[in-house]
Amino acid sequence: MLKILIGRILTTIPALIGVVVVSFLLTRVLPGDTAAYFAGPAATPQAIEEVRKKLGLDRPLPEQFASYVRDLSHGNLGQSLTTGQPVLSDIKARLPASAELTLFGLVLSLLIAVPLGIVAAVRQGSMIDHACRAIVTAGVSLPVFFTGLLLVYVFYFILQISPAPLGRLDVFASAPAEITGFYLLDSLLARDGATFRASFSQLLLPGVTLAIFALAPIARITRASMLSVLSMDFVRTARASGLSRRKVIMTYAFRNALLPVVTTLGMVFSFLLGANVLVEKVFAWPGIGSYAVEALIASDFAPVQGFVLAMAILYIVLNLLIDLSYRLIDPRMRASS
């Protein structure tokens, strides 16, 4: 098992090198001049030149790249020009906020989409099946910023049952002691019910927004995968040997239908990382997505590169976990390697 794990991690190295090169090049070819931006609108060309020199942007690209890689190997992701902080500490501070939001959305959508897909497949053509189709279509066609704004409008502005969409916690509440960086978990660990409720109510609307977005692909794949498994011979054998409906559907069919669902999960997660950027903007969420967008607008290279690299690592880790879960689900995968 350990050997496989190490082998898998080694295969991700070329991908990471690619990410480093591409993110570096992309930020250089983007329009916008960092030096001009930071010198300010009133700066003389001479002042801009000076800033450029200070930032090392006047040096040839290979040289810039070499120093970037050198810094990277020391764990230095550079300095953000907008926040004035090292990128690494910025990311460290903001990543848990994004991760909490994304995972909350993902878990919420799983809790709804998987049972929905199973029931839709088992009762094909029933009302639930049609409802599933309607929800799936709606989930795919509504952009996240629209659902986000709609939810804010309805629950905050009209019904006034939701707190203001301004970040992870009320301005007057204080964050729980940091253990995991996830407010929900940290407040639970600190046995702080009030903070838990406060952070949960802040998390609910953006989480639901992401969940609606993620619902569609998961429900669809669960339904399709269940349908194909339900028509297989071994399900017929299970029925013919008198196993209960529950046993046939859950133990026999669903476990076999899991593989495609888990595969889609990886893809959905990467969609969510993208959607996150918009949702964080709408809900003033102090996450890594909004950080990257602000940096991008300011032509601040270092945070953008750091963001892309962090996302790539996150995505690689997630795919590794998915690959490992295949082995747990399907014994054939264990045997073939």
Binding site: M232, D233, F234, T237
Partner: peptide, 10 residues
Amino acid sequence: NPRAALNPIR
């Protein structure tokens, strides 16, 4: 087709 008649992952 006995192989298909058995649950492959149980």
